[in-house]
Every structure is written in structure tokens, then in C-alpha cells.
Amino acid sequence: MRLRIACLLAGAGFALAPVRAADLVAEIRDSLGNLVADAVIYAEPVGAAAPPPRSDARATIDQVNKEFVPRVSVVRAGTQVSFPNSDNIRHSIYSFSPAKTFTTKLYSGREAAPILFDKTGLVVLGCNIHDKMVAWVLIVDTPWYASSGTDGLATIRGIPAGEYRVTATAPSVGLKGYSVPLKLDAAAARQTFVLEAGS
């Protein structure tokens, strides 16, 4: 019995041993050199499996002053996305994108069921009642992703050492994405992406 506990502890100790990890900072610019906000980056491991997704992954896209907040999201496949309604008037949210086709009506003072985003890809959301409302949800199959602020920087924190395919894209401003191979070690890495117009 004591031996078994010792073995369990040893096993746990091995699993909890610190993995060499660092931050990856991506600087995203357009072809004119301008910093790009609301760009998304994600790193997919090459030759190794990404850790399995959490079964309780949750994300939120709120409705505030007839805008989606945030306008751009990146989530892992398998995430339940809630659509609260801070506006407290009716919205009618829909997507015709292949990665997730759905409609959901948000009524005043009534909570709508969350939507499961189970496939990778890009989903564009609209509101049938307020046609200027648009949001983008990029669904990826990796836990390592980030989006850029107005400084054009997107930082993936604590990414383990290894080989990755790192992709940057900015669909909300009509910029086409591309991927680069990147070998990461324990030191912080920095990568610049220059995105061209297109889809």
C-alpha cells in the first residue's frame, strides 16, 4: 500500500515537473506597415498532439449598444459560447458560416442557451435586426492562441518548447492569414507577420 502511494506521488511529481515554456509575441502589420488590432494568432504543435480540450470551455459574446463585444474572438473547438444581452432589447443572432450555422434569438430579460462551436474554422455572426452588427469567431484546435490589441501585439503566454506552425490572420479587417514554422525554446520569441489584403 505504502509503495503504491509512493508510486502515485512519483507519477504526480513527474506530471507536475515544470515544462520549459516561454511567451510568444507576434507583431502584426498590414502591407503599409500599420499595426493591426483584432488580429488573431494561434500555434499548432508539429509532430505532437495538442493537449486535449477542456470539457468545460466557455466563452462569452455580449450585446452592448447594438454591437457584439468582443467583435473578434478566438476559441478552441468544443467551446460553449454564451450570448448574454446587456442591451435588454431583442437581438436575432445568426451565422451561415460552414463551421457553425445557427440562429438564436435574444429576448429582453431571457437567457438564451449557449451555442457549442465544435468545428474549426471562421464563423461570421450577424444580427437580423441590427444589420451593422458583425462579429468574427475563429475556432482553432489548440490551446495556444491570442488576439492583438491596438498596439498590434498578440502574446501567447506559457507556450511549451517545441515545433509549431504559427498562423496570424485578421478577418475583421479583410486581411488574409498565413502560417510560418517556428521552433520555440525556453526563451521568449518574437515574430512579425505582414498580412496582405484578401480572404
Binding site: Y94, F96, S97, P98, G126, N128, V134, P171, V173, S199
Partner: peptide
Amino acid sequence: LAGVVHSQTAEPPAKP
């Protein structure tokens, strides 16, 4: 319109 959405541009999605 469906084609526009499928091409995954910054265009808003088509309406029902």
C-alpha cells in the same frame, strides 16, 4: 450571397 460567406471575407453574412 452564400458564396460570399463561404469565401470567409470581412463581408457581413447573408440574411435569412
